[in-house]
């Protein structure tokens, strides 16, 4: 009664499957990401351009404490500097210092995180060492170090890097351990592919996605830390930075001369917010991409 079952299996596999659309383009259509990036690029770009309404480095004693308006949109401070020019000028140092510190941290942290992602005594030991390092209150140590050897931009960058490197190590280590449990790492190892190739050609490209949100967050925190250190007077004396501007303006607040505090604070606040919001949004996109590839 039953009809004979026939099975036809294609003996030739054609090459279909059009390459899927790059997911990264979606990131650049997100209005929040565009807004945050736009604000940061605008501020730093303006700072680097050198086109200020007044000189940020040459004071004009004739207009001391000029209130906002009349050619001085953000007013003039007690030394005769135009607050708008100086606030924009400071972006160059504050943001770029934070960026370079976070970049050093990201590179070092990624390198160490991947090295520490394999199971073994050495990496367990290194992870414990990291715990000890993170138990040290680095900002306090930073204050002490600056007190001892004086301050410079390099020292600030090193401090930022030291604070952020452990965060990158842990992030990359955790992500690389997940990657190692995927089939292709075992496959490569069985094939006798060298550990070096597995680490840098197979694992590294698969953990970079998680770096971007952390990087953005680290830059945001680093700007806040630079602000705090210069507020404490630990930045280079005489250099423009939002923290030191705020500090200098505070004694004048009771005299209703608010503009020296409000405008640098606004710059600091909006830039830190832009970086952390950027991080938040990137996190969402990274999770979407990872979800799609599993």
């Amino acid at each position: 009664m039953s009809a004979p079952t026939t099975v036809t299996t294609p003996s030739i596999i054609d090459a279909p499957a059009p390459p899927p659309k790059a997911r990264s383009t979606r990131i650049f259509r997100d209005p929040v990401i565009l807004g945050c990036l736009g604000w940061i690029v605008f501020l730093v770009g303006w700072s680097l351009s050198g086109l200020f309404p007044h000189s940020p480095t040459v004071a004009d004693p004739g207009v001391l404490l000029h209130a906002p308006g009349g050619g001085y949109l953000f007013g003039v401070d007690q030394d005769g500097y135009d607050v708008l020019s100086r606030t924009v000028y400071a972006a160059k140092f504050d943001v770029l210092m934070a960026l370079s510190g976070a970049l050093v941290a990201a590179v070092t942290g990624t390198w160490l995180g991947i090295l520490m992602s394999s199971e073994g005594r050495l990496s367990a030991l290194a992870t414990r060492g990291l715990d000890v390092f993170q138990a040290v209150p680095l900002l306090v140590v930073a204050v002490a170090v600056i007190g001892l050897v004086g301050t410079s931009r390099t020292i600030l960058v090193v401090i930022i890097a030291a604070i952020n490197t452990p965060l990158f190590i842990r992030l990359v280590q955790a992500e690389a351990r997940l990657v190692r449990k995927r089939g292709y790492v075992a496959v490569a190892r069985v094939y006798g592919v060298s550990e070096r190739t597995i680490r840098w050609r197979h694992i590294l490209p698969n953990v970079t996605g998680v770096l971007f949100p952390q990087f953005s967050l680290s830059v945001g925190y680093a700007i806040a830390s630079v602000g705090a250190l210069s507020f404490l007077g630990l930045s280079e004396p005489g250099s423009a930075s939002w923290g030191s501007m705020i500090k200098a303006g505070i004694p004048l607040l009771p005299l209703n001369q608010w503009w020296m505090v409000v405008f640098p604070s606004l710059a600091l606040f909006t830039v830190v917010l832009a970086f952390s919001e950027l991080s938040h949004r990137l996190q969402g996109h990274v999770e979407q991409i990872r979800g799609g590839s599993r």
């Binding site: 089939g183 292709y184 496959v187 590839s293």
Partner: peptide, 12 residues
């Protein structure tokens, strides 16, 4: 290995 794309390195 298990015969799927997941046994291949996605970036190569």
């Amino acid at each position: 290995p298990q015969l799927t794309q997941r046994s291949l390195v996605p970036v190569l």
